[in-house]
Amino acid sequence: MAKTQLNVRVDEGTARAARERALARGISVNRYIEELVRQDTGETGRTFVEAAADFMKQYESVFAEEFTETRGTRTGDGR
Protein backbone atom coordinates (compact mmCIF):
# COMPACT_ATOMS: atom_id res chain seq x y z
CA MET A 1 0.00 0.00 0.00
CA ALA A 2 1.32 3.44 -0.92
CA LYS A 3 2.08 5.77 1.94
CA THR A 4 1.00 9.39 2.19
CA GLN A 5 2.61 11.88 4.51
CA LEU A 6 0.23 13.57 6.93
CA ASN A 7 1.46 16.41 9.13
CA VAL A 8 -0.45 17.14 12.31
CA ARG A 9 0.12 19.51 15.19
CA VAL A 10 -0.62 18.40 18.74
CA ASP A 11 0.24 19.82 22.13
CA GLU A 12 3.43 18.62 23.81
CA GLY A 13 1.53 16.44 26.30
CA THR A 14 -0.21 14.55 23.49
CA ALA A 15 3.06 14.15 21.59
CA ARG A 16 4.80 12.86 24.73
CA ALA A 17 1.98 10.40 25.41
CA ALA A 18 2.12 9.11 21.82
CA ARG A 19 5.89 8.62 22.04
CA GLU A 20 5.62 6.84 25.40
CA ARG A 21 2.81 4.53 24.23
CA ALA A 22 4.62 3.69 21.02
CA LEU A 23 7.85 2.99 22.90
CA ALA A 24 6.03 0.79 25.41
CA ARG A 25 4.58 -1.23 22.53
CA GLY A 26 7.90 -1.39 20.70
CA ILE A 27 6.61 0.35 17.59
CA SER A 28 7.16 3.69 15.89
CA VAL A 29 4.95 6.68 16.62
CA ASN A 30 3.87 6.51 12.98
CA ARG A 31 2.70 2.91 13.37
CA TYR A 32 1.03 3.73 16.67
CA ILE A 33 -0.99 6.53 15.06
CA GLU A 34 -1.88 4.30 12.09
CA GLU A 35 -3.17 1.63 14.47
CA LEU A 36 -5.26 4.17 16.39
CA VAL A 37 -6.88 5.38 13.18
CA ARG A 38 -7.55 1.82 12.02
CA GLN A 39 -9.16 1.01 15.35
CA ASP A 40 -11.30 4.11 15.14
CA THR A 41 -12.43 3.24 11.62
CA GLY A 42 -13.30 -0.34 12.50
CA GLU A 43 -10.21 -2.13 11.25
CA THR A 44 -9.31 -3.55 14.67
CA GLY A 45 -9.48 -7.14 13.47
CA ARG A 46 -7.00 -6.47 10.72
CA THR A 47 -4.72 -4.57 13.08
CA PHE A 48 -4.84 -7.46 15.55
CA VAL A 49 -3.97 -10.00 12.88
CA GLU A 50 -1.07 -7.85 11.65
CA ALA A 51 0.23 -7.44 15.19
CA ALA A 52 -0.11 -11.18 15.83
CA ALA A 53 1.75 -11.94 12.60
CA ASP A 54 4.53 -9.52 13.58
CA PHE A 55 4.74 -11.18 17.00
CA MET A 56 4.92 -14.67 15.52
CA LYS A 57 7.59 -13.60 13.05
CA GLN A 58 9.64 -11.98 15.81
CA TYR A 59 9.46 -15.05 18.07
CA GLU A 60 9.34 -17.76 15.41
CA SER A 61 12.66 -19.29 16.41
CA VAL A 62 11.68 -19.36 20.10
CA PHE A 63 8.41 -21.17 19.32
CA ALA A 64 10.13 -23.60 16.98
CA GLU A 65 12.75 -24.43 19.59
CA GLU A 66 10.20 -24.82 22.39
CA PHE A 67 7.83 -27.05 20.45
CA THR A 68 10.63 -29.12 18.95
CA GLU A 69 12.08 -29.82 22.40
CA THR A 70 8.78 -30.59 24.13
CA ARG A 71 7.29 -32.59 21.29
CA GLY A 72 9.48 -35.62 21.92
CA THR A 73 9.33 -35.43 25.71
CA ARG A 74 5.62 -34.89 26.32
CA THR A 75 4.33 -38.26 25.22
CA GLY A 76 7.49 -40.18 25.97
CA ASP A 77 7.23 -42.04 22.66
CA GLY A 78 9.07 -39.59 20.45
CA ARG A 79 6.01 -37.94 18.92
Score class of each variant (00 low, 15 high):
1 M>A: 10
2 A>C: 05
3 K>H: 14
5 Q>E: 12
5 Q>P: 02
6 L>S: 11
7 N>D: 09
8 V>T: 10
9 R>Y: 08
9 R>F: 08
9 R>C: 04
9 R>P: 02
10 V>A: 13
13 G>W: 07
13 G>V: 12
13 G>Q: 12
13 G>C: 09
14 T>R: 12
15 A>G: 06
16 R>M: 07
16 R>L: 15
16 R>N: 11
16 R>Q: 14
20 E>P: 03
21 R>L: 09
21 R>W: 02
22 A>I: 04
23 L>N: 14
23 L>D: 13
24 A>Y: 06
24 A>L: 11
24 A>P: 02
24 A>W: 05
25 R>T: 03
25 R>W: 02
26 G>N: 04
27 I>G: 00
28 S>R: 04
31 R>Y: 01
31 R>C: 04
31 R>D: 03
32 Y>G: 00
33 I>S: 00
34 E>L: 00
34 E>F: 02
35 E>A: 06
36 L>Q: 13
37 V>Q: 00
38 R>M: 06
39 Q>S: 11
40 D>M: 07
40 D>A: 14
41 T>D: 11
45 G>F: 06
46 R>M: 15
47 T>Q: 02
47 T>K: 01
48 F>T: 14
48 F>M: 14
51 A>F: 00
51 A>E: 03
51 A>Q: 02
52 A>S: 08
52 A>C: 08
54 D>Y: 01
54 D>W: 03
54 D>F: 05
54 D>M: 12
55 F>E: 07
57 K>T: 11
58 Q>T: 10
60 E>P: 00
60 E>H: 10
60 E>M: 12
62 V>D: 07
62 V>P: 01
65 E>C: 09
65 E>P: 03
67 F>C: 05
68 T>G: 15
70 T>F: 02
71 R>N: 06
71 R>E: 03
72 G>A: 08
73 T>L: 11
73 T>V: 15
74 R>L: 13
75 T>H: 08
75 T>P: 01
75 T>I: 07
78 G>T: 12
